[in-house]
Design a binder for these strands. Structure first.
Lengths: 114, 114
DNA sequence: TCATCATATAACAATATAATTATATAAGCA
DNA sequence: TGCTTATATAATTATATTGTTATATGATGA
């Protein structure tokens, strides 16, 4: 499939962001479903500020969007991002992240606002 | 097309390497044809050690191979790299780099060993 | 309203990255 | 052999990145 070429700079910016194991995995998770910060903290066993700072970078670049739902802020993939097809192509190369979400449910730490 | 999933770490490593404008462009160039160091120095208007160090990183990760031809060392894309299909997918999103190679020929700084 | 939970931000420290300059190595040629 | 060209490596410096701790903000609920 022929792609519409973005500038080298734009692509390099996205790759640099996804060139971090934590951020790449976050995108893999968001590719399955929206997550709130505390879920990600639980999954990555990382400090809350560390997760927040990774999310900030992704948000500043427009790769993710945030939505407040009650006391939680849910992050989701921005499907309107100019580089969304590149991101999907990349995520097709990493293992499915559903397992991690399943574990959350089993531990009972899954947040649900529906 | 369903991909064979590499580990998140492996993919992140490749993305980090390509998350640099210079290295991403080098890979775009090598996707068209092999290049020697002095050609890349000419194209990027960058110091020779800077180019060599970028090539070293790409080589250490196995993304490129080197072949000596007389006094020049030509770099080429390693098509046998485990992550070659990911790299091709990514390069499909950047503009074709043939222009830069054409300019070299016009300036007469193209190296040919055939 | 006050305490608590969820999240963001600021300040800082440790580490990584990328460029420069200087120097080493290796091939080609007079 | 000694000079030149092509490339690599080392040392250094400047800057960027990532994580930690401390603190601020904002929503919920008693």
């Amino acid at each position: 499939m022929k792609q519409v070429a973005a500038s080298v700079e734009e692509v390099a910016t996205v790759l640099k962001l996804l060139g971090d194991k934590t951020r790449l995995t976050i995108m893999g998770l968001l590719n399955n479903q929206d997550c709130c910060v505390c879920e990600l903290v639980e999954i990555f066993q990382m400090s809350q500020p560390a997760i927040s700072q990774h999310l900030r970078k992704l948000k500043d670049a427009g790769l993710v969007k945030e939505t407040r739902k009650a006391q939680w802020i849910f992050y989701s993939m921005n499907k309107e991002h100019e580089m969304h097809s590149l991101i999907k192509d990349i995520l097709a190369h990493i293992p499915d992240q559903k397992e991690k979400l399943k574990e959350l449910e089993e531990k009972g730490t899954k947040i649900s606002c529906e």
